[in-house]
């Protein structure tokens, strides 16, 4: 699969993969961009073009791996982007999934035990994912910013980060991704009929979208953030 380049029109990106809409929003790009190319819009909005392309390509093509010379942007940009995706989960995706699930529950005939179970499972999942996000925001991101700063200023990193490494944060993801897959499996394969089809589909669509965004989020950390920080870790001394 080919990937997007700076000469591509932004409208082409969205026609190819409309899931990119919330992604470009995170860069402050809003609809109505006419025939502007990636290059035009990046200049206009002051966005690092390599970083923008790395993000939209990772999101669109799961095998995409940015080449080293396209990775010259600062890790602080990645953190800023990841924070915006977290914000998007809390402000939009979680509430949206919940609104849609609530609608299925309202329309449900009979005792709805099945759906109540799905709801409990979802709530448990949300709790775990939220904890994971908080952990990233409070531990991983400050570490990344600290080591980046130490690297850029050619100083030693604060002693409180002794023993930290970006690798040690990695495992958490698979666990969190797995549960949203289970949520889908349960609804798709094992829920008994008795609800409104359209409401239930709409709930599932939102779960699919959430999963997609989460997987992408994890991929950005795995293929962009982690390799960059591992390089920096080799160069920075601990104070």
């Amino acid at each position: 699969m080919s990937h997007f380049t700076k000469g591509d029109k932004l409208s082409k990106l969205i026609h190819t993969n409309h899931f990119l809409l919330p992604v470009i929003n995170r860069f402050g790009i809003r609809l109505g961009f006419k025939d502007k190319t990636v290059y035009d819009i990046c200049i206009e909005k002051g966005i690092n073009e390599d970083f923008f392309l790395a993000i939209v390509n990772t999101y669109t093509n799961k095998d995409y791996f940015p080449e080293t010379d396209l990775m010259s942007f600062s890790p602080s940009l990645i953190i800023e982007y990841l924070r915006k995706t977290h914000q998007y989960y809390f402000e939009y995706l979680f509430p949206e999934v919940e609104r849609r699930l609530a609608r299925v529950l309202i329309g449900c005939e009979g005792d709805c035990d099945d759906l109540q179970l799905v709801k409990s499972f979802y709530e448990k999942y949300k709790e775990e994912l939220s904890n994971h996000i908080v952990e990233e925001e409070e531990t991983v991101f400050p570490y990344v910013l600290a080591i980046t700063k130490a690297h850029e200023n050619n100083t030693a990193i604060d002693a409180k980060y002794k023993g930290y490494s970006i690798k040690s944060f990695e495992q958490e993801h698979t666990h969190v991704d797995q549960k949203i897959y289970d949520l889908k499996s349960i609804v798709i394969k094992y829920l008994k009929p008795g609800y409104d089809d359209n409401d239930c589909n709409s709930f599932l669509f939102s779960v699919f979208q959430f999963e997609r965004d989460l997987l992408d989020h994890a991929r950005i950390e795995d293929v962009i953030l982690t390799p960059k920080i591992m390089e920096i870790e080799k160069l920075v001394k601990h104070g």
């Binding site: 797995q178 289970d182 949520l183 499996s185 349960i186 008994k192």
Partner: peptide, 17 residues
């Protein structure tokens, strides 16, 4: 067989069935 990995997911399956 089930396409469910997590313990809580398996629990939901067991209760549903």
């Amino acid at each position: 067989k089930l396409g469910i990995k997590s313990i809580s997911g398996l629990t939901v399956y067991a209760i549903l069935n």
